[in-house]
Design a protein around this nucleic acid. Structure first.
Length: 804
RNA sequence: GGGCGUGUAGCUCAGCGGGAGAGCGCCCGCUUCACACGCGGGAGGUCACUGGUUCGAUCCCAGUCACGCCCACCA
């Protein structure tokens, strides 16, 4: 007889049934308090990875739990068009055919991207289905859907009208490979070995020179100043004079600026406003010219004269050699420092001055800071509150334009005179001069500009839909800590600005699952583990269980053992259900429990219910999952099931049957949010079932068991007190039997005198040690000391009795 | 440079002021009529290190070391 629970087939069957029966469907007009989570939209190009699977397990647990609690739930699915990421994927596809996007042209490229999405775009939601995710799949949204695009345009024009969006020529993070600007958050700073070169800049008046240190000699061709700290005595006399930039022989002013660190290098800094962010700001403040010698391809451009066309490395080499010849090279030293790289493709970032759209964040941030500060929005775990606040309080303008083709085209039109008209629909004429010769901005918006609207644009905004009315604000946002700034912060800002209300009161930041060796899970490192493989091997329930157990608040290493544990739990549950069903197939519910075991297990299950509610309410999942394992194995199977088994021999004992059924029901209900499939499968075989388990109301504290729960509580407290002080408070007969059950291992060990003798000897030694400590006797609370004395005396008596 | 987190049994992790725990692995015994993805028993830890607070510290405080992550315009 096959006695193993096999999830194959069972899980798919229920997934199809739940969806087909409309049990995932959300209805804004349905009764119940609304509860809504918007699935963090995965990239359209994405496949399910461990992070997605963990987050889906968490969200589905919350959704199923609230559905059972009678809330009107919506779990909103969808995708992000993921501008830069998707464009990169398509470009790679093209590269296989030796094509670039420029070979196709913009329209064909975008058309091809849409085609590609038709074929491969929708896979991740299908994969979520296989995990049992109870999303309302009918409501799938994408950030480039027609309706969503309207929301994005509204957002843009809104910000433009407020004067917070503007176009400016500024230094940006330029990725030469993506051929686009990117925002500060999309730059990774990576430590690299470099060379620090010390170069002499002659003074214009011939009175000598001053030495600067740089890691990028090639940029000196665009130097338009030299700066020193105003407090630096070494250079005080030079401020206001001029230096000559070697090679280009340019006379540049020597200026004083506090941003120059006196301790670094020589304390003198060459200023290249065109190619360095800090130099750019110093340059603007001092009115220095912004020259450009590096092009969008990161190579030296025509302005670099004889160095034009070279890579920067080549230019560095030649320039250093030239300086050596001229006697202006002082020294070179190895130097290690952090260098910016494109988060998307890893290419070294080039700071360049280009014309981009910027969003001023100060006024958007202020109310979003307040919301978190006064706890209308709370982070779980709480430590991320400071992470968020620190970033928000020093927020800087956001570069929102991208020189990409895939994304929301910036809704701005220019007339020949350069007037700007921003509008949701193509305007007929320039808003300023009435010219009808309008051309639209070529650029697209940062992907995160649109995903900031996710909690309400998916509900139909800017239309005033029933969905929006019902489910905004959402209730929880669950994400990885990697996108707290990119996404969470921006949803707060957009939600408050456009909806006048925070998007959700709870932000759950889940753990990061690393590879078993502790490295990051990544496809390119080959350290990735596909959650669908564990679903195939162990089942979706087991996978969900394992992931939730790994969802403690810090980083964890992926451990199949946790998923195997989940499989064990499913199997155990399946088997104990078989035991009960084979004996109680026609039992009727609602009988009063008779014996202490029965009342005890019902009270235990109720205590577990309370623990689940408390920890799930705090977004702590691992302890709850652990409690479910313990209550199933230790309490339900090892103790309760074993205890009632003999009573099944008595056909007249209807109480044991109906109680067993009731206890099993309760166990299934508690386990359902974690392991929906196996519980529903068992549920479907119960003679007592009336609805699907997925919509079966969650447990309330049952007054019938309140007394027993209270008794259990008393017994457990008594047991703790007994262990600590040796004093056992008075218990009635039933409570004493419950105590025996609680302490059953101890009781079992009583059979073996050598074990007991050893234990008593240890206890006596410990008690003697404590009582021999004068400070303990003098300073510890009197009742504790007294208890210890009584305990010692009792242990001695017991030992005496055992050893004779 | 600033901030956060982590260091507990061979492995992965719970616990966080008075008995040091789980799963896996390991050893011994069980095809006991729900379950060998099982049942019973067992070995295995100066709870990273150093100080402090306390009658008492794995747990609180300070510092040290190691690892990880986030933020960052010292060229």
């Amino acid at each position: 007889m096959d006695t193993l629970y096999n999830p194959d087939g069972v899980e798919e069957r229920w997934q199809q049934a739940w969806e087909a029966e409309g049990l995932y469907n959300a209805d804004p007009d349905a009764p119940g308090e609304p509860y809504c989570i918007a699935l963090p939209p995965p990239n359209v190009t994405g496949e399910l990875h461990m992070g997605h699977a963990l987050n889906a397990s968490i969200q589905d647990l919350l959704i199923r739990w609230h559905r059972m609690r009678g809330f009107n739930v919506l779990w909103q699915p969808g995708y992000d068009h993921a501008g830069i990421a998707t464009q990169n994927v398509i470009e790679k596809e093209l590269a296989k055919e030796s094509l670039t996007r420029h070979d196709l042209g913009r329209d064909a490229f975008v058309a091809r991207t849409w085609e590609w999405l038709e074929l491969y775009g929708g896979i991740i939601l299908g994969q979520l289905r296989r995990l049992g995710a109870s999303l309302d799949y009918r409501r799938e949204r994408m950030t480039m859907d027609e309706a969503y695009v309207r929301a994005v345009l509204r957002w843009f024009v809104h910000l433009y009208d407020k004067g917070w969006l503007y176009r400016a020529n500024r230094i940006v993070n330029w990725c030469p490979r993506c051929e686009s600007a990117i925002s500060d958050l999309e730059v990774n700073h990576i430590e690299e070995d470099d060379t620090l070169t010390w170069i002499r800049y002659p003074l214009a008046d011939g009175s000598g020179h001053l030495t600067i240190a740089t890691v990028r000699p090639s940029t000196m061709l665009a130097d338009t100043g030299v700066a020193v700290n105003p407090a630096d005595d070494r250079y005080r006399d030079l401020v206001g004079k001029e230096a000559i930039v070697p090679i280009v022989e340019r006379r540049v002013p020597i200026i004083a600026d506090e941003r120059v660190e006196m301790e670094f290098g020589t304390g003198a800094l060459k200023i290249t406003p065109g190619h360095d962010p800090m130099d750019f700001e110093i340059g603007r403040d001092h009115g220095l010219e912004e020259l450009t010698v590096i092009g969008l391809d990161a190579r030296m451009n025509e302005a670099a004269g004889e160095f034009a066309g070279l890579t920067q490395e080549e230019a560095n080499e030649r320039i250093v050699a030239r300086l050596g010849e001229q006697g202006l090279l002082e020294k070179q030293e190895p130097y290690r420092h952090a260098v910016g790289h494109c988060d998307r493709c890893g290419t070294r970032i080039e700071p360049l001055v280009t014309l981009q759209w910027w969003c001023d964040m100060k006024e958007l941030a202020a109310p979003a800071i307040e919301a978190v500060r006064d706890r209308r929005t709370r982070f779980f775990p709480d430590r991320y509150t400071d992470v968020y606040l620190n970033w928000m309080e020093k927020i800087r303008p956001w570069c929102v334009s991208r020189q990409l083709w895939w994304g929301h085209r910036i809704p701005v039109w220019y007339c020949p005179d350069g007037h700007i008209t921003a509008a949701e629909e193509q305007p007929g004429a320039c808003g300023e001069c009435g010219s009808t010769e309008l051309t639209q901005d070529e650029d697209v918006l940062d992907t995160w500009f649109s995903s900031a609207l996710w909690p309400f644009a998916t509900l139909g905004w800017p239309e005033q839909t029933p969905e929006l009315e019902t489910w905004y604000p959402n209730d929880v946002s669950s994400t990885d800590r990697g996108i707290i700034f990119l996404w969470e912060a921006r949803m707060q800002m957009a939600g408050i600005e456009l909806m006048g209300e925070i998007p959700f009161p709870g932000i759950n930041i889940h753990s990061t699952i690393n590879a078993p060796d502790g490295r990051r899970m990544s496809k390119s490192l080959g350290t990735g583990i596909n959650p669908l493989d564990t679903v195939d091997e162990y089942g979706a329930d087991a996978t969900r269980y394992g992931l939730l157990k790994m969802s403690s608040t810090q980083d964890v290493r992926f451990n199949v053992g946790m998923i195997e544990e989940g499989r064990k739990l499913a199997n155990k549950l399946w088997n104990v259900a078989r035991l009960i069903l084979s004996n109680a197939a026609d039992a009727r519910p609602a009988a009063e429990p008779r014996d202490v075991e029965e009342r005890w297990i019902l009270a235990r299950l109720d205590a577990t219910r309370e623990l689940l509610e408390e920890s799930w309410g705090r977004f702590e999942f691992a302890p709850a999952v652990n409690a479910l394992y313990r209550v199933t194995f230790d309490d339900f199977c090892d103790w309760y099931a074993e205890a009632i088994k003999p009573r099944f021999q008595d056909p007249a004992d209807t109480v044991v049957r109906s109680t067993a059924l009731a206890a099993l029901e309760r166990l299934l209900i508690l386990l359902h949010p974690v392991m929906p499939h196996v519980t529903e499968e068992i549920w479907s075989q119960l003679p007592t079932r009336q609805t699907r388990l997925i919509v079966r109301p969650w447990l309330e504290a049952d007054p019938r068991f309140a007394a027993d729960a209270a008794a259990l509580q008393r017994v457990q407290e008594a047991a703790v007190m007994f262990r600590r002080s040796g004093v056992l408070p008075p218990l009635d007969e039933d409570e004493q039997r419950i105590l025996q059950a609680v302490e059953r291992r101890q009781v079992a060990a009583d059979g073996d005198p050598t074990v007991e003798i050893e234990r008593l000897r240890k206890e006596i030694q410990r008690a003697e040690g404590m009582l021999g400590n004068e400070r303990f006797v003098e300073r510890a609370p009197a009742d504790v000391v007294e208890a210890e004395r009584e305990k010692l005396a009792r242990y001695r008596r017991e030992l005496e009795a055992l050893t004779g």
